[in-house]
């Protein structure tokens, strides 16, 4: 129980911040975060550590639940359901990864995002926080599809390089 409380206290802000960013509504965000942590409590045995570290799994679950809450239907939802399983996806922490604490990591990631070209940042935000596909982002921004793909990929690679340089 105490360990669960510690787990919650350690990660609730990050999970809540992510969910709130997606659903933009405090009440819904709290419901989702409660569901996510309850699932964690009830199904801890289903977590297979051999498949990857815990936190990316928790964040993937929270992001999925947030999108579910928005009742995104059709292609977008199907795409997400296909690609992001409820239980942990296989995920590897890269060799360069350093165990920054959450506060410093958040500051670093935000700094790296701010350092991106505005279009790169916007395209990544639309994909990650709003669940849009390449094509949907291109339509929304009225930019060529190839350009949007490049923005997202190059932006993510710059973030990766930045995190690597931090380590």
């Amino acid at each position: 129980m105490r360990a669960f409380e510690q787990l919650y206290d350690r990660h609730c802000r990050l999970v809540y911040g992510l969910v709130f960013r997606i659903v933009q509504q405090a009440g819904s965000a709290e419901e989702i975060v409660q569901d996510v942590f309850l699932q964690l409590w009830r199904n801890a045995a289903q977590y297979d550590a051999a498949r990857g570290p815990f936190l990316p799994w928790l964040l993937t679950m929270a992001r999925n639940r947030a999108f579910d809450n928005l009742r995104l239907k059709s292609e977008r939802q199907r795409r997400r359901e296909d690609q992001t399983e409820e239980m942990p996806v296989i995920c590897t922490v890269p060799q360069f990864e350093k165990q920054l604490d959450e506060k410093r990591r958040a500051a670093r990631v935000r700094e790296l995002m701010t350092g991106l070209q505005p279009q790169q940042k916007r395209a990544i935000e639309l994909a990650y926080f709003e669940g849009l596909s390449h094509t949907e982002i291109a339509e929304k921004l009225k930019e060529p599809l190839g350009t949007v793909k490049s923005w997202i990929r190059n932006g993510l690679l710059r973030i990766r390089e930045g995190l690597q340089a931090t380590s």
């Binding site: 990050l14 964040l59 993937t60 995920c91 990864e97 958040a106 990650y128 993510l156 990766r160």
Partner: peptide
């Protein structure tokens, strides 16, 4: 997948 999870921050 790990890199994408970092975007939550």
């Amino acid at each position: 997948r790990w890199l994408v999870s970092q975007l939550a921050y």
